[in-house]
Design a protein around this nucleic acid. Structure first.
Length: 507
RNA sequence: GCUCCUAUCGUCUAGUCUGGCCUAGGACGUCAGGUUCUCAACCUGAAAACCCGGGUUCGAAUCCCGGUGGGAGCACCA
């Protein structure tokens, strides 16, 4: 590939940009599909074009409504909104292939009439055997063309006895090339492909046929899709030729790879957008992360809003090699966006996790702790959120992190109260003096800054680590937690004293 | 196996078209230090790459040739 090949005109003259994402609802939306959708969306918006969502559900046995819903929900959640397509409609619908069957039928008939396609009555098992044989001889497996020259009578006879058939394209022998926006000139020899199947019956098109017809009818100008479709392009180009369609401009984007460099799939863990959403990733983070897999603006900017991306995105700067999915970087983006959220918004995002883990229960006025039966004020929850804003990488972590605020007394080994080599006697007396000082304070003054200044003298006298470590452990029961003043601020005077007493009792 | 695509730190990448500003820049991660009662956050620093071999040139990550590695596709799935 040379650079000059990439300097193709991006937009054909006098042609409106119309792109699409065409997922098949056979599984939860893959992160790769989401990224392809994003690239299409950005390209459309950048060029003032339209972005279409088309559902490719021609395979009835594998398609399910719940997956279609997942795809729709996922795109909406990410903020990748389509201008035309399912749910929205438009001038070129319907946008579900299963609702376009009669459209395909006329094209299939016409291909048959023009002898560009033919009926094939070969049995599947037979074909499978041929394929195995070809593979063993080191050939690329392809249909040998046995039914390509059946007479009209033979065909009629077979149809009459209702012999199973499929429809194959009559592949011309030639070299087919196209100019890929990302890869430059790509060339294939049709001989290696053979007469592939394009329909299961007159109104059951297969993928290659259906895409071509829909892209034509929906006036799709640019097909931006995953690299795995490069070899399909040849078949689609021939179909365009046969049906006298003007083919779209192609751009094949690199794949998202797993750690082992193979195509990212379910066996590698979470691959669906829904999974990330459930775990508590923010859509901003997912979008920001995805766009940088295989593309970058050439500047050192790392954080982008969708609007900034629309301005900056450039298809020609998309990488050609696959990009490994790096979960650490996704988390890093996520924690960045969490840190930049307002408390109220963040709280609302976290509440479902509290409820799911049965830490909070909805009541008429607000929330209640189902274990202690206490009411939990929103202001208290906000304080908690504030404490963990910089500590959580994904929202679901909030429940585990904030556990100590929803229990009666922490449970821990008394050795944890030990600061360095300090003996239990000193620890006990240090805690006692703190307790004494706190006892005098009015509970309404129990906030972090006030307490910190009030206790600073004792702390200095007894030693900072010598005082604060046991105090913090007494309050949290944890080796790592927010600071003692912060905890006291949240739990208030009464609970603070109780937890300190609990520690003293243990010693 | 065959066809196509592809190649800069462990990972995402800048730089390649238009050779010198590259003793190769940034980010994630890792490590060390600072801050600090702990953790996180934050700050500072470090280690870390031009796939290999030839050629062209005063000069190559960048241009040319030849290897090698990696990936995808090869369905009556999409």
């Amino acid at each position: 590939m040379n650079a000059s090949a990439r300097q193709q005109p991006m937009i054909l003259p006098n042609q409106a940009v119309r792109v699409r994402i065409a997922p098949s609802p056979t599984g939860f939306m893959h992160i790769g599909t989401a990224r392809t959708a994003l690239f299409n969306y950005l390209f459309a918006k950048k060029h003032g074009g339209k972005f279409i969502l088309r559902i490719e559900d021609t395979d009835v046995s594998r398609s399910e409504k719940k997956y279609e819903k997942d795809i729709i929900d996922g795109l909406q959640w990410l903020g990748i909104n389509w201008d035309e397509g399912v749910l929205i409609n438009g001038d070129y619908g319907p946008y579900r292939q299963s609702e376009r069957l009669e459209i395909y039928e006329s094209y299939i008939k016409s291909l048959l009439e023009k002898n560009h396609a033919y009926y094939c009555f070969c049995a599947q098992e037979e074909l499978e055997a041929i394929k195995q044989d070809q593979m063993s001889r080191g050939e690329r497996p392809h249909y040998p063309g046995r039914c390509s020259n059946l007479t009209k009578e033979e065909i009629q006879k077979n149809l009459k006895i209702e012999k199973d058939f499929i429809i194959r394209i009559r592949m011309p022998l030639k070299k087919v090339s196209f100019n890929d926006l990302i890869r430059g000139k790509v060339e294939f020899d049709t001989e290696l492909i053979g007469d592939v199947a394009i329909a299961k019956s007159l109104n059951q098109p297969l993928y290659n046929l259906a895409v071509v017809i829909d892209d034509e009818l929906m006036k799709v100008s640019h097909v931006i899709r995953g690299e795995e479709h490069i070899s399909n392009t040849t078949i689609q180009l021939i179909l365009c030729e046969y049906m006298e369609f003007d083919p779209p401009t192609y751009a094949h984007i690199p794949l998202i790879l797993a750690q082992d460099r193979s195509k990212l799939s379910k066996r590698h863990g979470a691959v669906s957008v829904t999974e990330y959403r459930k775990e508590g990733y923010l859509p901003e983070a997912v979008v920001n992360f995805m766009v940088l897999l295989g593309w970058n603006p050439g500047t050192e900017q790392e954080f982008f809003t969708l609007d900034e991306l629309i301005k900056t995105f450039d298809l020609l700067k998309v990488q050609k090699a696959g990009a490994i999915f790096n979960p650490d970087k996704l988390k890093w983006f996520n924690s960045h966006y969490i840190k930049n959220k307002g408390v109220k918004e963040l709280l609302n995002l976290c509440i479902p996790y509290f409820i799911q883990e049965k830490i909070l229960e909805k009541t008429t006025g607000g929330f209640k702790n189902p274990k202690t039966k206490e009411l939990v004020k929103e202001s208290e929850l906000e304080k908690i959120i504030l404490l963990f804003k910089e500590r959580m990488r994904v929202l679901s972590e909030i429940t585990k992190l904030s556990e100590i605020f929803f229990i009666d007394l922490p449970n821990y080994d008394k050795n944890l109260l030990r600061w360095k080599e300090l003996d239990f006697k000193t620890i006990k007396s240090n805690l006692l003096s703190i307790r004494k000082a706190l006892e005098k304070e009015d509970s309404s003054y129990f906030n972090r800054d006030y307490l910190s200044s009030k206790l600073s003298e004792i702390t200095k006298k007894q030693g900072v680590g010598e005082t604060l470590w046991p105090l913090r452990v007494a309050l949290s029961g944890l080796e790592a937690s927010p600071g003692p003043y912060e905890i006291m601020d949240v739990i208030g005077k009464e609970k603070t004293i109780r937890r300190i007493d609990h520690a003293i009792d243990m010693l």
